[in-house]
């Protein structure tokens, strides 16, 4: 690790405007040890009052410092937002979930092995240096939303479930607070893969707001190389409600396939009002995958996503 100055913030206003926050630290310290992140000053925000899960506007307001473990185990989340509990429990390990926070999980870096290897050129680590993943080992890489500059995937499971739940991110900045829809929170890499979110310098995530839970069945399915403690090859967060044998409402978000949690409203619209048949699923999935492209090593993700989605929809559409 390169040397840094450590300071601890005692309230939110003291933290706002600082260049690098640390809370759980599980991603930041990992990257600092690799020399990928080299902050010269870090601000410890772990003592700030952002650790509660509150009933809020018919939904929940989750403080940014609520640990992934506490959020997954909260009985309101287990009963009302099971897709979120399931997603959280499928991510990382018991030790990491105890440290990792809600805000930090959202802000973990979109990353790949080349990003973490300082001997490889990487546009995310050093803009303009090139992408070593393209033409390299690409098993974990994106099939949607990538650019010629970066094909890394966002590894969060939690954020995929939150995307399906239409979560809002509450942030505090120099000019006050604002709420950002999670669907607008992440940027696509385009030609600036080093910029992953729309957060302005010094803005602090204070909470995530979940709207009232949608009706219908919820599930989270994650397909990966190991049974536990591995990133998703493909994951699906799904919420479906049925009426009179037809799909009434859907929300579907995908992990492991794009530089951000992926959601496609045109694809969802192609499911609504239709009978839950294989033809319906396949025609809609054609829309979802219309711009999908593999890099060789990850080509398998295209059929894997189609099949995983078919299994999820079959499960959720059962009345």
């Amino acid at each position: 690790m390169t040397p840094f100055n450590y300071e601890r913030a005692s309230d939110i206003s003291e933290a706002v405007g600082k260049p690098q926050f640390i809370a759980g630290g599980t991603n930041l310290l990992d990257l600092m040890k690799l020399g990928v992140e080299t902050p010269d000053r870090i601000t410890d925000i772990t003592r700030l009052d952002m650790k509660n899960i509150e009933d809020h506007e018919g939904g929940l307001r989750i403080g940014a410092l609520v640990s992934n473990s506490d959020l997954a185990a909260d009985m309101r989340v287990r009963q009302t937002y099971p897709v979120l509990s399931r997603a959280l429990l499928s991510g990382a390990s018991g030790q990491l979930r105890n440290m990792a926070t809600t805000g930090g999980n959202l802000l973990q870096r979109t990353r790949c092995y080349y990003f973490q290897d300082k001997s490889s050129p990487c546009n995310k680590r050093e803009p303009g240096s090139g992408c070593s993943a393209i033409g390299g080992v690409t098993r974990l890489h994106a099939i949607l939303g990538a650019s010629e500059h970066c094909i890394a995937t966002h590894p969060s499971d939690m954020a995929v479930a939150m995307q399906a739940l239409d979560a809002l991110v509450e942030v505090e900045g120099k000019d006050g607070s604002r709420r950002i829809a999670l669907s607008d929170f992440y940027r696509l890499p385009e030609d600036r893969p080093d910029r992953e979110t729309v957060l302005e310098y010094g803005e602090l995530i204070t909470a995530v707001v979940l709207p009232p839970a949608p009706t219908g069945k919820q599930t989270y399915r994650k397909v990966r190389d190991r049974a536990s403690y591995a990133f998703a090859l493909v994951s699906v967060a799904g919420i479906v409600s049925m009426q009179d044998g037809k799909i009434a409402q859907v929300a579907l978000a995908f992990g492991g396939v794009a530089p951000r949690p992926w959601r496609d409203l045109e694809f969802e619209a192609a499911l609504v009002g239709r009978a839950p048949t294989r033809e319906t699923f396949d025609a809609a999935t054609d829309i979802l995958l219309r711009d999908a492209s593999g890099q060789g090593g990850n080509d398998f993700k295209i059929p894997l996503l189609r099949r995983t989605l078919r299994a999820v929809l079959t499960e959720l559409c059962e009345e």
Partner: peptide, 15 residues
């Protein structure tokens, strides 16, 4: 740490 298992390698002592 306070009853919770954690990875001590990914934790700064000063925190």
């Amino acid at each position: 740490a306070d009853g919770r298992r954690i990875n001590s390698c990914l934790t700064l002592a000063c925190m």
